[in-house]
């Protein structure tokens, strides 16, 4: 059993975590997921501990990917843990080269074993040994990105709700901007579009990490998705529901006109 596999070969959540397996399934079903590698919880721990054999296996599996890389945690220990540990386990956007994967994985492993993660585990009654898988993907440099709910997470209405901003979608996920908001019906008709106030765009920098860039004034309140892009997102919503079932929470990004699916999970908010 290999512990570092191409994403499309990640099938077991107990080994690779729900994020990796969800993306693997998306690739197998033909959804537009950027190429990547899934690491098991045990190999992440071995790399964090400096075991040469594990480091070589990870390096060799990740070599086909073009740096910079996005390295995301994929918790493997409990049902639904990926969602509940969001914010506890680290994601490292823009690891500049394969050589820096070892220290990135060490950081991610320690994030699952940090005092704050343990405090959280004690509070929610999950005081068990953490295990954290990892997804490594080529880092995108999106023109626009955000989230899409295939059902309205607030009202429960059978419509798509899309939030979008400039640059990496982390600005939307982290609440750093007021994103554009779009409501689209199941047939792809736009019901409502509300421009946001997007003063900041998160961009990757060549030396590693990300930077918060000021958005030019004329773009702050300009809608960042056009009709064709909304249609494409609408098709992605439909495909995702066909693969995973209804009520999905999707992270997406447009790069040079190409739509990418970054994450797809069940909606966990109230109203559904």
């Amino acid at each position: 059993m290999k512990d570092a596999v191409p994403l499309e070969m990640a099938r077991d959540t107990a080994i690779f975590g729900s994020k990796a397996v969800g993306l693997g399934e998306a690739i197998r079903q033909g959804l537009p997921v950027p190429p990547g590698v899934a690491l098991s919880g045990s190999i992440v721990e071995a790399v964090a501990g400096g075991e040469e054999e594990a480091i070589e296996e990870v390096t060799s599996a990740a070599r086909p990917l073009h740096a910079p890389l996005a390295v995301r945690s994929s918790a493997v220990d409990e049902d639904g843990a990926d969602a509940s540990f969001a914010g506890q386990h680290l994601t490292l956007l823009n690891v500049p080269s394969i050589d820096e994967l070892t220290s990135a994985l060490n950081e991610i492993w320690w994030s699952a074993n940090s005092d704050s993660a343990i405090t959280y585990r004690q509070r929610v009654g999950l005081f068990t040994r953490p295990s954290v898988g990892v997804v490594i993907q080529e880092l995108l440099n999106p023109d626009s990105a955000g989230v899409m709910f295939t059902r309205n997470p607030i009202t429960g209405a059978d419509e798509r709700m899309i939030e979008a901003s400039w640059g990496l979608g982390e600005s939307v996920v982290a609440g750093l901007v007021i994103p554009d908001n779009y409501r689209v019906d199941r047939e792809g008709r736009v019901l409502e579009r509300t421009p946001g106030h997007k003063k900041i765009a998160i961009r990757s920098v060549p030396s590693g990490g990300t930077v918060h860039e000021q958005v030019p004034t004329e773009l702050v309140e300009r809608l960042c998705l056009d009709e064709d892009q909304l249609e494409e997102l609408s098709r992605l919503a439909l495909q995702s529901e066909q693969v995973y079932g209804p009520a999905r929470d999707i992270e997406w990004a447009f790069v040079g006109g190409t739509l990418n699916l970054l994450q797809c999970r069940a909606i966990t908010r109230a109203g559904i």
Partner: peptide
Amino acid sequence: KERHFSQGETVTREGSGG
């Protein structure tokens, strides 16, 4: 396992879980 902390980084916080 090795762990690096930057200058000024809080390693443990009084009252937090360990």
